[in-house]
């Protein structure tokens, strides 16, 4: 008896919560739920609702209504369709390039490199995150201008860059989002027990077979996790296209062009990347990767 009364005096809040699991749960979730529902979902909802609204053709003032005209425009205007497909292609390409770079790098860092080199590489991967996003985009622009660093470097070999175009956009976006792929992949490879490599080797598997049969299946969840970042961030980007894409137009470019003039069209068009991401997540879920993340 005396024990309980003692602890009640000392920890009145914890003993209060101990008996009231619902209050406990509320206390735990209040802050994140306010954030998710109040700030995140609500603002997203308000944006998407605008997609059904009218806009005054002259003053660009929006007024509440229910019309599907904006969606009809998106699905009938060939420029909008082409831009959607182009953006999807760019996002998938960025993700692929990130994976192709991240897996060998992760294996090297986790299993081959000395601890010193490993730390140096980890810093090198995260280093770009320290610089501002726009700074990096402009840096890529300067590297690939006609009289820029790349053409200067490659001139002795007779190689010239492609100029501002889709390949440069893919490269820029890869540069921007690579850490989001490289870090989870590296962490996942580090967590693979060394005995699995020994076992694979004992069974007679060579290096590439081990990577393909042992490492890859184990790091698929990490690749999916990374690809959610690289894919969805690429889908929404427009500044990379503006500064390094030449005349390349992405979904974000059209949304940005409409956001002041025709907010309903911008809102309706923003459904397209959302749809792409949802489909992507559903496919990822089907593979079972999300559960293992």
């Amino acid at each position: 008896m005396s024990d309980t009364s003692m602890s009640r005096q000392r920890r009145p809040i914890s003993s209060y919560l101990l008996r009231r699991p619902k209050v406990r749960l509320l206390g735990l979730l209040a802050l994140p739920m306010t954030w998710i529902v109040g700030v995140y979902i609500l603002s997203l909802f308000l944006l998407l609702v605008t997609a059904f609204w009218n806009v005054d053709p002259f003053t660009s003032l929006v007024s509440p209504a229910f019309n599907l005209e904006n969606f009809r425009l998106i699905f009938t205007n060939s420029a909008y369709i082409a831009t959607s497909i182009r953006t999807l292609f760019i996002a998938l390409a960025v993700t692929t390039v990130c994976v192709v770079f991240a897996v060998p790098l992760g294996i090297f860092m986790a299993k081959i490199a000395s601890p010193r080199l490993r730390n140096a590489l980890a810093v090198a991967i995260t280093l770009p995150l320290w610089a501002g996003y726009l700074v990096k985009v402009i840096a890529m622009r300067l590297v690939f201008t006609e009289e820029g660093f790349f053409n200067w470097l490659m001139a002795p070999l007779g190689i010239r860059g492609p100029g501002f175009s889709i390949p440069i956009v893919i490269l820029t976006l890869t540069y921007l989002w690579f850490p989001y792929m490289a870090l989870p992949v590296y962490t996942a490879i580090r967590q693979i027990p060394p005995i699995l490599f020994d076992a694979s080797s004992d069974m007679g598997a060579k290096g590439f077979v081990t990577v393909y049969r042992v490492v890859l299946p184990l790091i698929v969840p990490a690749i999916i996790a990374g690809s959610v970042f690289t894919f969805s961030l690429s889908l929404g980007d427009y500044l990379a296209a503006r500064f390094t894409g030449g005349s390349t137009q992405m979904i974000g470019s059209i949304i940005a062009a409409n956001i002041n003039l025709n907010p309903p069209v911008a809102a309706a068009y923003s459904m397209v990347p959302i749809t792409f991401v949802v489909i992507y997540l559903m496919v990822a879920r089907r593979t079972g990767s999300l559960e293992r993340m």
Binding site: N77, S78, A79, Y80, T83, S247, N262, V265
Partner: peptide, 8 residues
């Protein structure tokens, strides 16, 4: 609307 179609 027309401008968006220009850049394709």
């Amino acid at each position: 609307n027309a401008w968006a179609t220009v850049k394709g």
